[in-house]
């Protein structure tokens, strides 16, 4: 089997006269965790429904694990684990009963089925609630049942539609950890609104807006396009030191520009926003420069909303545009180091 696990070519979908997807192309390789990002109604769910063969594209084609969604929907369904948006489950069933049903539907019986269910339950830490009715579970547990259901057959491809929505931060962190763990061996494609989520879990980001794919890159590279991430540096000092400090940081290699943020007068602190020319982690250089020049560094933080800017830029206004798109299809996933 080739390395490409998901391949979408010219996917379009019209609902009546409304074009939900317009000529979407992308590839996802084995072992990649890809985040699908976009505002509500951009076409994320539609794309996922097409990839899972729930609906058919109006034009274009898609292959999942080598199976065409038109020619071999059964092959596609066998290869995927799918968690639809808002985690629809048979809430009147017990957790175990439900997982048994799914295993049976996937053709597993007896000992094999029990082993697989046991593994999925362990992976999702559902052991405590296995004999409970699904409707009695909290949102986080329901989400885990949804994940367990998608994992029973150890699929090559996992498609998760907003797996983290509505979870509290602790629950989200758990699910995130789980996804990262699963993503080490399998292909995961997940949609979300949460940019922090993407930065932490995904190797690559697809941004979709009004049915069009407007970006396909690693989170790092996307940040690059809007000038990369910025660094907020707080230094002890008064007004008079301002230009001197600016010079010191300005000499650091890779610094593009420095802005001073207006701080409260005479608080003894100065805040600078340092923009690098490329997406580079300059924290060490900034620290060393400060030490060398005997500056008291009170704070040094990498600005997290780099992606947010990209998102805003690409998804507001008609269609959105790509500033300096480098390669049409970024192939090798670059693991993001944070």
């Amino acid at each position: 089997m080739s390395d490409v696990m998901i391949e979408a070519q010219g996917l379009s979908k019209n609902y009546g006269s409304f074009a939900a997807l317009k000529d979407v192309n992308f590839e996802v390789r084995r072992g990649e965790v890809v985040g699908f990002l976009g505002p509500n109604g951009a076409g994320k769910t539609t794309t996922m429904k097409i990839l899972t063969c729930f609906i058919a594209p109006t034009s274009g084609s898609a292959k999942v694990a080598g199976c065409d969604v038109f020619d071999d929907p059964m092959g596609v369904r066998k290869a995927i684990g799918y968690l639809p948006e808002s985690t629809p489950l048979y809430t009147e069933m017990l957790v175990l009963e439900y997982l048994e049903f799914v295993a049976k539907m996937r053709g597993y019986k007896g000992v094999d089925a029990r082993k697989r269910i046991k593994k999925a339950v362990e992976q999702t830490s559902l052991g405590d609630v296995i004999a409970k009715e699904i409707r009695a579970l909290s949102k986080g547990y329901k989400q885990r049942v949804g994940l367990a259901q998608a994992l029973v057959h150890e699929p090559d491809v996992l498609i998760l539609d907003e797996p983290m929505s509505g979870l509290d931060p602790n629950q989200a962190a758990e699910i995130r950890g789980l996804i990262t763990e699963i993503g080490e061996q399998r292909t995961v494609i997940l949609s979300t609104h949460d940019l922090g989520e993407i930065q932490q879990t995904c190797d690559r980001v697809l941004i979709i807006n009004r049915g069009k794919l407007v970006a396909d890159d690693t989170p790092e590279e996307l940040r690059d396009r809007v000038g990369g991430s910025k660094f907020r540096v707080t230094v002890q000092g008064g007004r008079s030191d301002s230009s001197k400090i600016r010079d010191i940081f300005g000499k650091i290699d890779g610094v593009h520009s420095i802005r001073e943020r207006a701080s409260e007068s005479d608080s003894g602190e100065l805040l600078f926003v340092v923009s690098p020319s490329k997406s580079e982690d300059l924290r060490e250089e900034i620290f060393r420069a400060a030490v060398k020049n005997d500056l008291v560094l009170l704070g040094l933080r990498r600005d997290a909303d780099g992606l947010q800017n990209v998102f805003r830029e690409l998804t507001t206004g008609e269609g959105g545009s790509l500033p300096a798109k480098k390669s049409a299809k970024k192939s090798t996933p670059v693991k993001e180091e944070e």
């Binding site: 059964m74 639809p84 048979y90 259901q149």
Partner: peptide, 14 residues
């Protein structure tokens, strides 16, 4: 209405 149709129909079932 509950959305389970989607979970059901994306299982390998005709």
């Amino acid at each position: 209405a509950s959305g389970t149709l989607e979970t059901l129909l994306t299982l390998p079932v005709r």
